[in-house]
Simulated assay, not measured.
Amino acid sequence: MISDSLLHALRSARHVVVFTGAGVSAESGIPTFRDSLTGLWERFDAASLATPDAFRRDPALVWGWYEWRRMKVLQAQPNPAHRAIAELARHVPRLTLVTQNVDDLHERAGNTDVIHLHGSLHRPRCLRCGREPDEPLAMPAEPDAGRRLEPPRCMHCAGQLRPGVVWFGEHLPGEALDRAFAAAQACDLLLSVGTSGVVYPAAQVPELAWEAGAVVVHVNPQGQAGRREREYNLAGPAGEQLPALLAQAFGRG
């Protein structure tokens, strides 16, 4: 049962921030970095492929893996959690969506102006000039082959394209991080959904909201230990908890 005080806080909020992590996408079948790779990629460690050094050593290997990941995303569909967040935006005066995920499931569910802290699989950029392609990338020809693929070339300078994600050892995009921090410090209520809250600096987002006086709600299958004032825990899958929260707060999910 969701507490009356949380329902009141959500109904009266003027600015809600939703902060999502890998757990939300996992409910659509997208593997997280904690999951073992499968198929022809099972002999690799995901963390060892997601680095600038790995791309410099073997760009075709890394690009092929990211194209495999992109295809997995394109095959997936938004789940009830993604759709509930889009629905919530229609019930509150202002909603800011901040995600650590590199897929486009939030957008496909109807969310707009999503702040991607870790970049996007769908927005590669040139290593040389930094520009993004003028046209979207074509669908990978053999999505499950696990094969090496030479990265495309930039149409502007002929430089090599790289995946548009933040790799281990790289800084988060400054503009996205600034927008996320500013929203957290200005909101009335923050929903932290499907994230462990241990990867910094992104993990500062819920902390900044709480320190600024906002209500903070954690939605995770395992729940969160140590509840503080103005902090709530909804233990369970996001695809169940978020629709239930909306149904009780606004009479629909």
Rank of each mutant, 00 (worst) to 15 (best):
A235H: 03
S36T: 04
R125Y: 12
T32S: 15
Y200N: 13
L10Q: 05
E175N: 13
L177K: 04
I2S: 06
Y66F: 15
Y232A: 03
V62Q: 01
R69C: 10
L88Q: 07
W167I: 10
P93H: 07
A54S: 10
L95Y: 01
A145K: 00
D103Y: 06
S28K: 08
L61V: 02
P136Q: 00
L234S: 06
P78G: 03
G21Y: 11
P93Q: 00
R131A: 15
Q77W: 02
W68L: 02
L10V: 15
V24E: 11
R125K: 10
M139S: 06
P151H: 14
A86F: 05
S48N: 08
P237T: 04
H91A: 14
R108P: 04
A235S: 13
R123E: 14
Q185I: 03
L40D: 13
A46C: 08
H91E: 14
P140S: 14
E87T: 14
R252A: 10
A138C: 01
L191P: 07
G23W: 14
L95T: 10
S12H: 09
G174K: 15
V17Q: 03
A13L: 05
D53V: 13
D45S: 02
D104L: 00
E27K: 01
G251H: 11
R70Y: 04
P201Y: 10
A235K: 08
F19V: 01
P201E: 06
A138K: 00
D4M: 07
R14I: 01
V73T: 12
D104H: 00
L127S: 04
